[in-house]
Amino acid sequence: MTMREKIEEAAARYPDQRSAIMPALLIAQRQHGHLPGPVLEEVADILGVERIWVYELATFYTLFHTEPVGMFHLQLCDNVSCMLRRSEDLLRHLEHVLGIRKGETTPDRLFTLSTVECLGACEMAPVMQVGDDYHGDLDIARIDALLDRLRTEAGRPTGADHAAAASPGE
């Protein structure tokens, strides 16, 4: 299905096209990775709604990104339950091994690191969401293993040889 078809299908669930802006943005973001202005305009056109309404929603909700994010968006929960289980240490570790601060993207555009509010999985705190998946009961070793897996998935050098392989042009 094209993006337009998916959006139109989603819109059919509501009596008012405006309701479909959120589902449409989720669809568009899956397609484009993020939501730059022209994509917002396209969504508004498909639904026949005001452009500003689309822009309002794209900025109100934290899951929408109007700026590009890395291939893997590491979203570490730092709310109370995770904090009590030392998610701060994990954040510090992630910042260290990725060489970026929270809110930033690695130069190879592989990882974007964010902290998020409670993910609703406090039974396995500390938790991090990457893409669609939750990773719980994390510690430093598990984080490292996870990063390696993600790099492999992307066909990039893994953590062990990463430092050596990092080319100056990266």
Partner: peptide, 10 residues
Amino acid sequence: VHIHCGAGAY
């Protein structure tokens, strides 16, 4: 029943 996904807002 229709599902409406939120997008990150408590």
